[in-house]
Design a binder for these strands. Structure first.
Length: 200
DNA sequence: CGAGCGATTCGC
DNA sequence: CGAATCGCTCGG
């Protein structure tokens, strides 16, 4: 049985973003209890963004605006934003206060509350519920308006520890053609052999 | 089943 | 005015 109350400890969010993403966040559980309905998914795919140097990051070059403000907080809270007029994207803020780093969660394997996910997504197919950053927010009920800036160590939105380290693959990030020399950095990581990946 | 395209709102 | 996307349509 998975213990969804085994929160990822606060100190983990202050580790090197790549080590944290690869060793702890891949395979961890993203959980929501929104509208009195519990859902959880195993994190299978994510991307690292660094505010000080990375042209693909909203906060580059360490630019604090109303939108990017939560990325500058101490690691352990959610950065949720709205794109394309219709979709929300969920990120985990990492690093010390003042560092604007975020990890975009791109894909999950549905674990709990699967019928709720089906209802929210208006589809039956298991592999179309949470395989994409916009899809997983819809499936878990996450919105920028309600959940941006929340601490991830309590309901309604939290992260629970996975079972340990996993084999993963590195790849270029998706949808950031404008990011010049940072466009091709292999900062997307996904679980090797997982069927729940947004793009192979 | 893969490529192409339109949808639609907010931040800058 | 363009975006860290998605789902539908169309052609092969």
């Amino acid at each position: 049985m998975i213990d969804y109350k085994q929160y990822i400890p606060a100190a983990s969010y202050l580790r090197d973003p790549f080590a944290f993403a690869q060793e702890e966040l891949l395979g961890a559980y993203l959980c929501s209890n929104i509208g009195k309905r519990f859902c959880a998914g195993k994190i299978t795919e994510l991307e690292v963004y660094l505010g000080h140097c990375d042209k693909a990051c909203h906060a580059y070059p360490d630019k604090k605006t109303k939108r990017t403000e939560v990325m500058f907080r101490q690691g352990g809270c959610a950065y949720v934003y709205f794109v394309y007029g219709m979709y929300n994207q969920f990120n985990v803020v990492v690093g010390k206060e003042g560092e604007a780093n975020a990890i975009l969660i791109r894909s999950l394997e549905p674990i709990a509350g699967i019928d709720i996910m089906r209802e929210r997504r208006h589809t039956e197919k298991l592999n179309n519920l949470t395989t994409g950053p916009g899809k997983l927010c819809q499936a878990l009920g996450i919105t920028a308006k309600e959940h941006n800036g929340l601490e991830l160590n309590q309901p309604p939105l939290w992260l629970a520890k996975g079972e340990g380290k996993n084999d993963f693959v590195s790849a270029p990030r998706v949808g950031i053609d404008y990011a010049e020399e940072y466009r091709d950095k292999p900062w997307r990581f996904y679980l090797k052999d997982s069927l729940f990946i947004s793009k192979k």
